Simulated assay, not measured.
Amino acid sequence: MKIRSLLAAVLFAATAFGSHAETYPSRPIRLVVGFGAGGPTDVAARTYAARLGEILKQPVIVDNRAGATGGIAANMVTHADPDGYTLIFVTSPMMTMVPVVQKAVGYDPVKSFTPIGLVSDYANVLLVKAGSPVRSVADLTRTAAKGNGVTYGSASIGASNHFCAELLAQMTGTTMLHVPYKGSAQATTDLLGGKIDFMFDATGTAVGQIRGGTVRPLAVTSARRSPALPDVPTMAEAGIRNYSMSGWFAVLGPPNLPRTVVDTLTRANLALGRDKAYEESIRKAGYEPMLTVPAELTEHITRDLALWRGVAAKAGIRPE
């Protein structure tokens, strides 16, 4: 009897432990962000984390690890335990542009992570100073075609707004001089000061300047018009056929996340797509909800990597 009772107790304990071990999440989740607090990526991540935590019934805590264009955060997560309690909120340039222009990023965008899903997308918008004689994309490309030394600014070499302008130059067969800065804010300052002719900027960031009347938007880079700027044409509508480029945010985990964890996070991610409060808050920040399954995220990374590698090769941009 004693042996039978002991076996029953052991079986009960094992069952109870197994049940507990399979319950995910059972404690707070850390969502790592590769940029500083208060920036556009951080704002989007915190909006996402707050609603995700409500769905999972566990706090999702944003952990800012800025540096190396998101590389510090990315490398930290690739080496985290694959238990689902450390995730990363990434921007598309981290996954599809930085690896094109930097030799030693330390991670493979496809192989070093477990994809969870896309979260939202955003357009860039082509901007000129409010008093600029350039009033359309056609005006801009005509000026460039004449060899008049058209200049544009970007946040850095390989940044989203750098590649947007390089793609425009390649598609129109024109030459435009790139002036890289340490962040888009510095480029905007020089745009307003007349030191550069144009720049691209994220719609969410640019809306304030547009509404304030200091810059003029010529076109958005997405395939459809931005709800934040409904009167601004797309690049295709402005005459650049087949020009379509959208940035995006996404969530990934360390490599080898268990399938049960991935499934739980995927269900929660998709649930946010049906959350009206989340949609409203993310649109207010200038982004469009785009909540997907892991396979769609992998497809976006693979497709965009191929696009920007081609653009970089044609422009003679080599990894440094």
Rank of each mutant, 00 (worst) to 15 (best):
G117V: 02
S136E: 03
G131H: 12
Y152P: 04
L192K: 09
T143H: 01
A144D: 07
G131T: 15
G194S: 03
G193V: 00
N161K: 00
N124V: 05
L168F: 08
A138D: 14
G153E: 15
F163C: 10
V137T: 04
T188D: 14
L167R: 11
A138R: 07
G158N: 06
V119F: 01
F113V: 07
S136R: 08
L177Y: 13
S120R: 00
L177C: 05
A187S: 06
L127Q: 01
D139A: 04
R135F: 00
F163D: 12
V125I: 10
E166T: 13
G194Y: 09
Q186L: 12
G106P: 04
S120A: 10
L168D: 03
M176V: 11
K111Y: 11
V125M: 09
A185Q: 15
A138P: 02
G193F: 09
N148S: 13
N124R: 01
G147N: 07
T189E: 15
A145L: 09
Q170N: 03
N148P: 09
A145Y: 06
H162P: 03
V179I: 12
A165T: 11
L118G: 10
V134T: 13
F163A: 07
A169R: 01
T114R: 08
G117S: 09
L192R: 06
Y122P: 01
C164G: 14
G158L: 05
L127M: 06
S154G: 08
L191A: 05
K182Y: 15
M171H: 05
T172F: 00
L192F: 15
T151C: 02
S184I: 06
Q186I: 00
Y181D: 13
G183W: 10
V110R: 14
L127W: 04
K146M: 14
Y152T: 02
G147A: 06
M176S: 05
N148A: 13
P115S: 01
S112H: 07
P133H: 07
V128N: 04
V137I: 04
V128H: 07
G183R: 03
T189S: 15
S132R: 08
T151Q: 04
V179D: 14
A138E: 13
G149R: 02
S160Y: 07
G153K: 00
T175N: 10
T175C: 05
Y122N: 09
A138G: 10
K195S: 11
S112L: 02
V179T: 10
T143I: 14
L168R: 01
S132D: 12
G131F: 05
G106L: 02
T114W: 09
M176F: 11
T172I: 06
A130D: 14
S160H: 10
V119T: 07
P180D: 13
L168M: 12
